[in-house]
């Protein structure tokens, strides 16, 4: 984003504010959820990175964590949840199944959630280790910091 001193400073401030106040919506469908729980709870503690608030309504969340296998039957539900989230929003594909379908290459499973919704960060692993998840979420924060922020948020395609 091009701009003068004031707009770039404002942009950087917005990025700083947004990256440390990520409200998360965990969309948990499978065993990766156990790994998510260990990361979100006191032992690894997502709250250190400003992601401590779990929102059980997509309308209040900034970050959609898709944790686990997404089946064809579930795909419209995930899409609805994503559409209900207000901008700005980010999506994390958590674990091999969400990234690519994982070991389930069959009639029932969506081969990666990027077939349905846009994804910002992919976390590989079956399930991923908590350190991997923390690393990925810090990467997401860096991405948010670098993004061009606008009061009128442009829709991602």
């Amino acid at each position: 984003m091009k701009g003068g001193f004031i707009t770039t400073t404002l942009n950087s401030m917005l990025g700083w504010g947004r990256k440390f106040s990520l409200f998360q919506y965990p969309f948990i469908t499978a065993c990766c959820g156990m790994e998510y729980m260990s990361v979100a709870c006191a032992h690894y503690d997502l709250d250190r990175f400003g992601m401590g608030w779990t929102r059980f309504s997509p309308r209040q969340a900034d970050m959609l964590l898709v944790v686990g296998t997404i089946t064809q039957k579930e795909a419209p539900i995930l899409k609805t949840v994503y559409d209900q989230m207000t901008e700005p929003k980010w999506v994390v594909a958590f674990g091999a199944c969400a990234v690519s379908g994982g070991i389930y290459d069959n009639y029932a499973v969506v081969q990666g959630i990027d077939n349905i919704i846009p994804v910002d960060v992919y976390i590989p692993g079956c399930p991923p280790r908590p350190e991997t998840i923390l690393n990925a979420l810090i990467k997401l924060q860096e991405k948010i910091q670098k993004e061009g922020h606008d009061w009128r948020w442009k829709k991602k395609k």
């Binding site: 064809q72 039957k73 795909a75 419209p76 899409k79 009639y107 969506v110 990027d114 077939n115 349905i116 919704i117 846009p118």
Partner: peptide, 14 residues
């Protein structure tokens, strides 16, 4: 049943 047959309920992005 065809091994690669998929029947998505919504349109896939790719």
């Amino acid at each position: 049943y065809p091994l690669r047959k998929r029947q998505p309920r919504i349109r896939m992005r790719k």
